[in-house]
Design a protein around this nucleic acid. Sequence first.
DNA 1: ATGGTTCTCTGACTAAAGTCAGAGAATGAA
DNA 2: TTCATTCTCTGACTTTAGTCAGAGAACCAT
Lengths: 311, 311
Amino acid sequence: MNAEREAGQIARVRRFNRTVTERVGVLHDHYLGRDRPVGEARLLWEIGDEGRDVRGLRDRLGLDSGYVSRLLRSLEADGLVTVGTAPGDRRVRTVRLTEAGRAERAALDTRSDALAGSLLRPLNPAQRARLVTAMAEVERLLTAATVVLDTLDPGHPDAVHCLRAYAAELGERLDTGFDPARSLLPDPGELRPPHGLFLVARLHGDPVGCAGLKLPPGAPAEVKRMWVAPDVRGLGLARRLLAELESRAARHGSTLLRLDTNKALTAALGLYRAYGFEEVEAFNDEPYAHHWFEKRVAPPGAGPDVSVPAR
Amino acid sequence: MNAEREAGQIARVRRFNRTVTERVGVLHDHYLGRDRPVGEARLLWEIGDEGRDVRGLRDRLGLDSGYVSRLLRSLEADGLVTVGTAPGDRRVRTVRLTEAGRAERAALDTRSDALAGSLLRPLNPAQRARLVTAMAEVERLLTAATVVLDTLDPGHPDAVHCLRAYAAELGERLDTGFDPARSLLPDPGELRPPHGLFLVARLHGDPVGCAGLKLPPGAPAEVKRMWVAPDVRGLGLARRLLAELESRAARHGSTLLRLDTNKALTAALGLYRAYGFEEVEAFNDEPYAHHWFEKRVAPPGAGPDVSVPAR
DNA sequence: ATGGTTCTCTGACTAAAGTCAGAGAATGAA
DNA sequence: TTCATTCTCTGACTTTAGTCAGAGAACCAT
């Protein structure tokens, strides 16, 4: 049945991979590193205008510490970067571009533009427009597919980051403001096993969304603290978080999922309805809530596959 | 004016390049060559089930002859390929996969599927469908952009290939059959400077289309022998060939472009009309023609930019 | 048959990319 | 203070990837 469709999709993706790595990937690298090893060029690019600490570079590019060190030494010898110790922690070193480094980066930039231009030039205006649109779509969806969901302790720095952002956003959007201490979940620690769980979504290691699940014994599971960072909205991440929570709730044995929300959060209201939640009478006295929803939980294994992508 | 739009498009393409090389390109290579150097893996892949001659491999992958030889030696030592001399020409060597080589290739295949799957898995069905559609579009258009147009002598093997394919196709599609000797251009050598020119379109070095231009002194320029290979139709190549011919005619000083065609070639008829040709009275007595068209030539520089993409 | 060409291979290199095992300084927790 | 940990760096390697200059066999046109 749909194994066949899936095989077709996989074949398409593979053809895409081949075409694109041939036409874009190889060119990309060799355009980039015309008079400089690709490794150095990538590093130069990744340092950015702001500067960056060495650890960050290693993580981002996935390189060995000794290797990065050597690359930096080489860039330093060419006068393209300066390496100094970070203000807070004197073990950590930060790299910044020099004037010459900026110029070199600008040259890479120009080449990157030339590559992009060479892809567009043979096409007529209508084709260009279509290519650009399709590229934007692919990019958006690949980005969506790159987001990974992890169960984290609510005290983990990434979890804290999300919870702060959640509170800050509610504070702005609700006419009443928002004070977590006054809400029904003053302590997110309640979202810790065995009383619940807390999901964090990350993109390239940066936290970009979260959702908590309360699992009170003998009572319906409850969605709490769902948030998605503004710059990754529209990627279907909220839906994915909900689906993941639902499947966790199902595995836990819950048969009903509930949540409450504020009338100001119109996008969330729409999502809950579209996802299959139905509005019900108030089941708690959360001071910030105007709407209460519930949804029967699909039995385990029936949910969409949202496992972590390989990397 | 549209410099601004172009800058926007270039920026989009660059973002795409970055996302895709990060997410697809790097993975692609390192998935592929997990326990084998990428170079060898690529070679193994490129040999294919049918076997291939060494020269073909070199061309396709753009590698040094010595390098390929060494890679083959290594694959041979691992028992993955056998190298023998080609039947026709004993200088040429052909490579075929052994049983073990096929198995290794199948393993690469599986990994490639796994990579594709890892891109799709985090997405919901609607997103998967959209991603696959957008990928197909990008791939099509990148393929279109990869086609290069060259002016070739009509006697060049690639030109001959196209002219033969042209004649064979007409022979099939016209109720009357087609005999080049009976047509008004029995000798394609007339499409040679200074009396004309002959364009060949190539994709990865293989000829996939052609178009000739007659430039009779003091008379309108005339399009002849336009053909596009079946498997690259729908990429806008015919239109691109027409545009290139028009701009060559303009540079030559022609102000009118003409052509004749057969009623069986419905796609061509549609293209000519869409491109701005208007049907006129017969201007010659070509036995295979049912329709005659002409179009005023845009002055030099006004045509779309169809210069050769970088590679 | 002869001379120029084509095709593949070998030997002798080089540069890039990356790995691994410490060493030494700074930090944080007990 | 002490001990484990974190972070960066150096030295000593290896593997990939690729280049270049011929050599030798086979082919092709004259």
